[in-house]
């Protein structure tokens, strides 16, 4: 078969390279994680990190820091990055909308508002309540945005506008609660900007199962997502029950985005940027886009968190702020060149 390389639109043009490429990304992710663990208020050498992970000594102060502070932090980052990126990939495939992202479409904001509301009403609820509140908030936001945006056809512009409107509205409600309630504000101020700081294994174990189900589900319906990305009529003509696929996919997005928000607050742009990079590397088949998105999302959030801790040392920025610095220019690029009007 002839190879017309001038038309190549993906880095890994040959299918044979897809699996090695994914494994390489995984190695890169692990490297980023270890690097991230060494960085912090006190720099810890890689040798000590290794010892703390595989030969833990609770008398060593550095070992304790690594096991109780830094390890949960990086694990939370990977989980959140994978969840948001895969949620974005599903949404982009399903809606054929290059701007689809749980942040832009208001789902993250809905989940965050639900969490803030619950903290405000209940004080310090048990950890599982966070996840449930985030799920409900994410689900209502998704239903609202789709309901408003789908009037007269769910075009990228309509959906994005509906998402922006919901985000603006819900975020001001969130701010209103936080302003009039100092106690709630103190407790979750950093979290509302999207932060991996202060995450512990207790909250990870509450949200990780939700996200794990979301990720596995996404892989299971990835072939169907590729088909529906050709357009709903084409997918129906090929014998797909598109309504069922859309409902399953929506449930997975709500689980992934809701779980991610419960864990680290509303971090935007991961779900927008990463699927495009995954497509640029691996092409248009969602059986590959989804695993690539998961790994690359983990890398991006880990690096953003490193940057958030390093740029203003010893001060620490919320990772959501760093993501916005990367994501906003990318959004402009997509809106300018990739959205067909």
């Amino acid at each position: 078969m002839t190879h017309l390389s001038s038309y190549q639109t993906r880095i890994l043009g040959s299918r044979v390279l897809l699996l090695p490429g994914l494994l390489l990304s995984l190695v890169l992710l692990i490297g980023c994680l270890l690097w991230s663990i060494t960085l912090g208020a006190a720099d810890i050498t890689p040798q000590v990190v290794y010892a703390a992970l595989f030969d833990f000594d609770e008398a060593e102060f550095d070992h304790v820091i690594i096991q109780t502070v830094r390890l949960p932090r990086v694990i939370a980052g990977v989980i959140v990055g994978a969840a948001l990126a895969v949620a974005g990939a599903i949404m982009q495939g399903l809606t054929r909308n290059p701007l689809a992202d749980s942040g832009l479409l208001g789902i993250n904001a809905g989940a965050a508002f639900a969490v803030v509301l619950v903290v405000y009403l209940l004080g310090t609820p048990s950890l599982s309540v966070y996840a449930i509140a985030a799920l409900i908030g994410a689900g209502l936001a998704a239903a609202f945005v789709y309901g408003i945006g789908a009037f007269g056809g769910a075009t990228p512009l309509r959906l994005t506008l509906a998402g922006v409107i919901l985000t603006a509205f819900v975020s001001s409600l969130t701010t209103a609660i936080l302003i009039q309630d100092q106690e709630t504000l103190d407790r979750i101020r950093f979290w509302t900007a999207g932060s991996l700081g202060g995450r512990d294994f207790a909250i990870i174990t509450q949200t990780a199962p939700l996200i794990a189900v979301g990720l596995v589900g996404a892989l299971l319906i990835s072939r169907q997502i590729t088909t529906i990305s050709l357009g709903e009529d084409v997918a129906k003509g090929l014998g797909q029950d598109t309504l069922r696929i859309k409902l399953i996919a929506a449930a997975l997005v709500v689980m992934l985005a809701g779980g991610a928000v419960a864990l680290a607050g509303p971090i935007g742009f991961v779900g927008l940027v990463i699927p495009h990079i995954a497509r640029f590397i691996a092409g248009v088949d969602y059986r590959w886009i989804i695993p690539y998105s998961a790994v690359l999302g983990g890398i991006l959030v880990t690096l953003a968190d490193v940057a958030a801790r390093v740029v203003l040392r010893p001060l620490e920025l919320p990772v959501g702020v760093m993501m916005a610095l990367v994501g906003a220019p990318f959004f402009i690029y997509l809106a300018r060149w990739k959205v067909k009007r």
């Binding site: 993906r10 590729t226 088909t227 357009g231 003509g237 497509r279 092409g283 088949d285």
Partner: peptide
């Protein structure tokens, strides 16, 4: 779908989808 195929009017493929990948979808 194994007995009756339909092509809608002016369908659009996702950017970057190759001809082989499109045709392979017919096996769905």
């Amino acid at each position: 779908a194994r007995q009756l195929g339909i092509l809608p009017q002016a369908p659009t493929a996702p950017e970057g989808l190759t001809v082989h990948e499109l045709v392979a979808q017919g096996r769905y």
